[in-house]
Design a binder for these strands. Sequence first.
DNA 1: AATCGAAAAATTGTATGAATATCCTATCTC
DNA 2: GAGATAGGATATTCATACAATTTTTCGATT
Lengths: 225, 225
Amino acid sequence: MLKIGIEQEDSQYSLRAKVFQQLEEDILDGKFKSGDSLIETKLSQELGVSRTPIREAIRQLELEGLVKIVPNKGAVVLGISTQDIEDIYTIRMLIEGLAVRWATEKINDEEIEKLKESIELSEFYTRKNNMQHLQRFDSRFHELIYEACKSKPLKHVLTTFHHYIQKARMSSFAAPGRASDALKEHKAILEAMIERDCDRAEKLMYEHVKNASANLIKAKKQNQN
Amino acid sequence: MLKIGIEQEDSQYSLRAKVFQQLEEDILDGKFKSGDSLIETKLSQELGVSRTPIREAIRQLELEGLVKIVPNKGAVVLGISTQDIEDIYTIRMLIEGLAVRWATEKINDEEIEKLKESIELSEFYTRKNNMQHLQRFDSRFHELIYEACKSKPLKHVLTTFHHYIQKARMSSFAAPGRASDALKEHKAILEAMIERDCDRAEKLMYEHVKNASANLIKAKKQNQN
DNA sequence: AATCGAAAAATTGTATGAATATCCTATCTC
DNA sequence: GAGATAGGATATTCATACAATTTTTCGATT
């Protein structure tokens, strides 16, 4: 098994983190719909833990904007609408280019190696047509750049957004040819980064997000028909 | 007393919210420095509440990126550096224009009235030279626009950032002439919005944030000398 | 004197109990 | 019959108790 430096999920350490992940996934996947209310006792029975970790996880979801807490009444799911996802792509078009620009200015050899590795693995799984793993390393490419840009606020916002749109990305990859196009775009971006060409890297990333967004909207229209 | 529609702080309702606000403020104000560890029992004694609300607040701070939680070990303060604040201004230059563009497209009469009101109050306190209240309504102008852009993700990120840089803004206003310049810029932005001139509003907001950023950096340099 | 290790202290993680607020419903009044 | 109201049920909030883990202390051994 290839050893890669994907950051460990802290879910193995605390119930709270597990519950948080579970609830977040359930909301993003639509198992909890907007307007559903999260009852502590019910959840604690379903998940087999006490109310304490449940409460802490719900409080975190509130700060993520995924639920709304009304004092003394409880938490209702807000979820993410397709409009939210479109907005996120629009925002990413504006700032993900900045991230790759800063990353290009500040990246070190080790980080470049990791980027290369993520692209190699993406190629591997593209050929294998394994969408699950493909998305994983496609995601990793972006998150490595967020890390490499060395800006806490920029990394924070992009990571959060990236997390939100995971589900949308999945269906986006299903479009024929999109996966290999995205891979080509990633390669071009990395090439520009290695040549320390900030302008080109920024422009390429802008185009990449724009293409992904266009692809997503196209896929959405097709689903409606 | 003039009745204005500032959203209520929910701190009056729950201990957790109070603790969260307190800790957040202490971190942003620098009372807790980066690297400090937050001990639950110590905080619970100092604030006179049990550990439960403390824990919940700390978990929220983690999601805001203000503290880092190491499982079974505790929470350490991360805080906000001056570099973080500069980065936030750079990001805002890119996306706050988008917010005002969307707001211009979607704003209704009631929201325009609120913007007018916030500007009138800013004028009042500018003449009075009351910086505390001035900042309050300057902030309100921006937050009304975040609300009016009707995009949950955009509002979320800008509100968070705005919150982070409160302290920096305060010192920025102290620069002679900056407060009245900012007010003029706000007026121009609102005018463009009322005329439904998206392009102009967007450009003016970009310039506004750019000016604020430049002013901040200038003030920072002066403080160093 | 330095190091290792075990016991003790400190701290976090989880569960549960007590108090309070809200909601629902049945009953009463007009 | 419609609306108000009281009371029980339900859920949240906060506190506390207990468990698990980490850190510190301190003494024994090399």
